[in-house]
Simulated assay, not measured.
Amino acid sequence: MTTPLDMDPAVRDAVKDLADAEQLYEELKEKVVDGEDVTPRDLAEHRELIDFAALMIDSTKKKVTAARAEDRQRRYIELGDELATFTAGSQDVEDALIAATAALRHLLDVGETRRQRMKDIASRGAALRQEARDHGEESDLKNAGVWASDAENGIVYRRVENGELTYRRRMLLHPAHLAALAIRNSVISHNLDRGITYMEWPESSMSAGRWAAREFPAAAGPTMPGHAEWPGQ
């Protein structure tokens, strides 16, 4: 915010000089009344000082106004030059955006490949389970590790390997669930690094990200204070 012209230090000094000159002139007139040795020339010279001080106020205001105008013009040009550089120099953002888009597209592609593979396994598993039921061999199917294999409940693998029980469950995730998790983790990590400890997050996106986080706990990402408990934390 620009300081009012009358509050400018140089203008205030000029105004003070005028006030001092006027005070000296009044004191000199009192000396005349008191019979002290004051000549007409003395009064005239002090009157001239008052006139000069008044002119200096106008001169100072004019100089300050011109200096301020020059400073504004300089700042106009500086900001224009900065804006020109900024609008022409966003290559780093464009490169990052292109890289992020490519990475996200790759995530969607591998996610879709996984989804199609799971749908195929689930379909063949459902048919094989029915076949095992028909022959009373469901326990044999489970001993082979196939405990569940359908699109609704996912795939469950459970079998003793090298004397230890191995259990794995995989859900049929849409690639968008993986993208939701990646975006959620990027945004929250960015905000946590900036000291932001709470932010609103769309519930639909949060749910989709949570499904993917449960499926891939190593990639679950950070939790955000104030949010619901996050898988992997």
Rank of each mutant, 00 (worst) to 15 (best):
V64N: 05
V64D: 04
V64G: 01
V64H: 05
V64M: 04
V64E: 06
V64C: 01
T65S: 14
T65G: 02
T65L: 12
T65K: 14
T65N: 07
T65E: 15
T65V: 09
T65C: 03
T65H: 04
A66Q: 15
A66P: 00
A67Y: 00
A67W: 04
A67T: 04
R68N: 10
R68L: 07
R68V: 04
R68K: 12
A69Y: 06
A69W: 01
A69L: 13
E70P: 01
E70D: 14
D71Q: 15
D71H: 10
R72P: 01
R72K: 12
R72M: 11
Q73H: 11
Q73D: 14
Q73L: 10
Q73T: 12
Q73F: 06
R74C: 01
R74S: 08
R74Q: 14
R74G: 04
R75D: 11
R75T: 12
R75I: 06
Y76Q: 13
Y76E: 15
Y76H: 11
Y76M: 11
Y76T: 06
I77L: 15
I77S: 07
I77Y: 07
I77W: 07
I77C: 04
E78S: 10
E78I: 07
E78W: 02
E78L: 13
E78F: 03
E78P: 02
E78M: 08
E78T: 10
E78N: 09
L79N: 08
L79A: 10
L79V: 09
L79I: 09
G80F: 05
G80C: 05
G80M: 10
G80Y: 06
G80S: 14
D81Q: 15
D81V: 11
D81I: 05
D81W: 04
D81T: 08
D81C: 02
D81E: 14
D81S: 08
E82N: 06
E82C: 02
E82W: 07
L83D: 05
L83H: 03
L83I: 05
A84L: 07
A84K: 03
T85S: 07
T85K: 08
T85H: 04
T85P: 00
T85G: 09
T85N: 08
F86R: 05
F86I: 05
F86A: 13
T87D: 01
T87S: 01
T87Y: 01
T87L: 01
T87V: 06
T87K: 00
T87M: 03
A88Q: 08
A88L: 01
A88C: 04
A88G: 12
A88F: 01
A88P: 00
A88R: 05
G89H: 00
G89D: 12
G89C: 03
G89R: 03
S90V: 02
S90Q: 15
S90G: 15
S90T: 09
S90M: 09
Q91N: 09
Q91V: 07
D92E: 15
D92T: 10
D92Y: 04
D92L: 06
D92I: 03
D92H: 08
V93D: 06
V93L: 14
V93N: 06
V93R: 09
V93K: 08
V93Q: 10
V93W: 07
E94M: 09
E94N: 07
E94K: 11
D95N: 13
D95R: 12
D95G: 01
D95P: 02
A96I: 04
A96L: 12
A96W: 03
A96C: 07
A96Q: 12
A96P: 02
A96H: 08
